[in-house]
Design a protein around this nucleic acid. Sequence first.
DNA 1: AATGAATGAGGTTTCATTCAT
DNA 2: GATGAATGAAACCTCATTCAT
Lengths: 200, 200, 200, 200
Amino acid sequence: MTGRKREKYGLILDAAEKVIARSGYHGAQVSRIAKEAGVADGTVYLYFKNKEDLLVSLFRERLGSLVQRFHDSIRETHTAGEALRIVCGIHFTMLEKHPDLAHVTQIELRQSSPKLRSAIGLTVKPYIVLIENIVRKGIEENTFRADLDTKLTRLLLFGAMDQVVTSWIISGRKYSLSGQVDKTVDFFLRGLTVQERKIR
Amino acid sequence: MTGRKREKYGLILDAAEKVIARSGYHGAQVSRIAKEAGVADGTVYLYFKNKEDLLVSLFRERLGSLVQRFHDSIRETHTAGEALRIVCGIHFTMLEKHPDLAHVTQIELRQSSPKLRSAIGLTVKPYIVLIENIVRKGIEENTFRADLDTKLTRLLLFGAMDQVVTSWIISGRKYSLSGQVDKTVDFFLRGLTVQERKIR
Amino acid sequence: MTGRKREKYGLILDAAEKVIARSGYHGAQVSRIAKEAGVADGTVYLYFKNKEDLLVSLFRERLGSLVQRFHDSIRETHTAGEALRIVCGIHFTMLEKHPDLAHVTQIELRQSSPKLRSAIGLTVKPYIVLIENIVRKGIEENTFRADLDTKLTRLLLFGAMDQVVTSWIISGRKYSLSGQVDKTVDFFLRGLTVQERKIR
Amino acid sequence: MTGRKREKYGLILDAAEKVIARSGYHGAQVSRIAKEAGVADGTVYLYFKNKEDLLVSLFRERLGSLVQRFHDSIRETHTAGEALRIVCGIHFTMLEKHPDLAHVTQIELRQSSPKLRSAIGLTVKPYIVLIENIVRKGIEENTFRADLDTKLTRLLLFGAMDQVVTSWIISGRKYSLSGQVDKTVDFFLRGLTVQERKIR
DNA sequence: AATGAATGAGGTTTCATTCAT
DNA sequence: GATGAATGAAACCTCATTCAT
C-alpha cells in the first residue's frame, strides 16, 4: 500500500517537474500536472495539501537530495580547497545532467510566490552552511586567509556559482557547465590578481 | 504637450515603484498604480503599451541610470583593481541608499514573467559587459591572471555581488551593505587562499 | 453617474431575486445572476464585495423596506390591537403581492450559510422589536394582560406569522394569504379558549 | 447479521448527529461521519443510499421518536387545554435535555437541500396533525372557540413554539426553555388581551 | 461485508485591458 | 488627452460517490 502511495507521489512530482520545465511556472496548472501524471485533479490533493505544497515538495525532494550528496561527498575529503572543488563539481555536474531540474530551479521557481520562495530558501540554507563550514575549516587549516568573513564569503561563493548555472541555462546550454568547474574554483581560491606562493 | 506627457509618464513610474515596494510584485495591480499616480486606469495605457511595458520601463529607467553611473565613474580610474572597487562601491552604496529600489530589483521583479525577466536581463547586460571590460583591462595590464575566462569571470563577479545584496535585503538590512565592499573586492582580487606576492 | 450606478445595482439585485426564486439558493450562481442582469460576471463585483454581500444586500433592500413600512404605518394608529392588525396585514399582504420575494425569504435564504443567516437575523430584528413595542404599548394601555412576558411574546407572534407564510408558500400558494390576517390576529388577541368580556 | 447491521447503522447515525452538532451542517462531510463512526467511507453507502438518505434517516429516527412520545402522552389526558400544555411541555423539555439535537434540528438541518427539507417536513407533519387534533377536540369539548380555523391554528401554535426554541438556541441557551412552557400555553389559550370569564 | 484510494465536475473571484463618453 | 465602468477568461480546490480488492 505504501509502495503504491509513494509511487503516485513520485509520479505527480515527476509530472510537475516536466510540466514546469515545458510550460514555465505560470503554465503549471494543477490540472495539467494531473493529466501529465495520469491521475485525476483531485488525486493531487490526496498527496499534497495544495499547489504550493506540491511545489515546495518538488523543490525539497530534488534539491534536498542534492544537498545530501554534498554532505556525503565531503566527509572523505581532506583539504578545504579540495572540498570546494568537490562541491562545485557536484553542483555543476548534477544540474548539467538534469537540465529540466536546472531550468526549474534556476528560472521557473524564482518567479514563485513569497511563501514558496521562502520555503526554497530554507531548503538551500544547509547548502550555504556547508559552504561556510568549508571556509571555516580552510581558515583552521591555515590554507584560507584568516581575515575572511565566513558569512560574507559563503554568499560570494554561492552567488557566483548560482549565477554561472543561471547564465548557462539562459544561454540555451550551449557549452559545458561542468567544464566551468576548474576555472570557477580557481577563481575562488586564487582570485583575480597575479600572485605567487612565497618561496621559502 | 511633450513636457506634460513626460510629467505623467514619470508620475506613473514613480507610483509603480512605490506600489511595488509597498505591496510586492503580485500586489502591483494597474489600478493601484494608477490611483497612486493620481490618474485613471486607462491613462496608464496612453503611456505604456501594457503592464509589462510599464514594468520594463521602470526597470530600464532606474537600473539604466545606475548602469550609466558605472560607466561615468570608471572612465577616470586607472588600474582594473581600482575600477572593480569603484564598481562594487557604487553597486552596494546606491542600493543601500535606495532600499525601496533594492527591494524591488532584488526580490519583487524576480518574480515576474519570463518576458519581463528577459527584458531585465537586457538592461543589466551592459553592466555585466562593463565588468568584463574591467577584467579584460586587468589582464592587459598584467595585474589580472592571463588565464582568466573573461566571460565566466564576469558572471562570478556579478553573481557574487548580487547575492550579497539579496541576502542583505532578506536579512532585513540589519547591517551595513557598503561595509561589505572592501571584503568583497578583496575576495575578488585575492581569492580565499593564503598567498603572498613574489619577492623579486 | 450615480443614477447609472444605482441602476445596475438594482438590476443585479432584481436578477438575484429572480434567479433564486427560479433555481433555488443553491442554483444561484454568480454567473447566472450576472447573465440574468445582462452584465458580465466581473461587474457584479463592482457593486458587491462578494456573493454573500450580494445576498445580504438583497435581503436588506427587500426586507428592510418592508420593516420601514411597518414603522411608517404604525405611527398613526391608536390601540395596540389595531397596530397588531396592521402589522400582520402588511406582513401577509406584501408577501402575497410578491411571491418571488416570499419564496426567497421563507425558503431559499434559510438554506444559507451561517454568516448570511446571522445577517438576515440582524435585518429582521427591528421588526421583532417593533412587535415587542406594540405588546408593551398594549400593556400600558391596559388592553393587554399585564403579566405578559414581552420578550417571549414577540417570539410567539413573529414565529406564528412566519410559519403561516412558510406553509402558504410550501402549499403552492393555493389559498389567500391575506385572508388569514383576521383569524391570525384574532388568535393573537383572544387565544383559543371561549372567553367573554366582563360585563361591568 | 441483522443485529450487526443495525449496530453499524446506529453507529453511523450517532456519528452523524455528533459531527453535525460539532461542525455544522456544512462541515458534515461523509468522510468525517465515517471516521467518527469508525467505519470506512464506502461502508456508509452500504447502509444509506446517499448522504441525503443518511440525513433524512437521522431526522426520522430522532424526531420520529419525539413525535411518538407526543402521541403516547396525550392519550391519557382529558381536556384540550391540558393536552396542549403537555405537548408544549414535552416539546420544550425534550429539546432542553438534548441541546445537540436541538441545535441540529433548529439550526443546522434548516440549511439543507430542498429534498431534505421536504423529507423533514413529512416527519414533522404528524406532530402538526396532532396539534390540529387537539384543537379540534377543544372545539368539540366547547372549551375552544368554535370559529377557529383548525388548519391555520395548528400553524400558529407550531410556528410560535418553534420560534421560541430557535431563539433559545441562538441566544446560547442562557435561560430555561422549559420555563417558558406556562407562559407560552397561557398565550395560546388566553391570547394577549385582558379578558375575564363570564360570571354566570 | 468492508475498505479507502481515486475520481472529476463545478463555482467564486481577480485583474489586465478596452472603449464610449 | 483623459476617464473609469465594464469586461470575461482562467484556475484552484472540495467532496460525494464509486469500485477494485
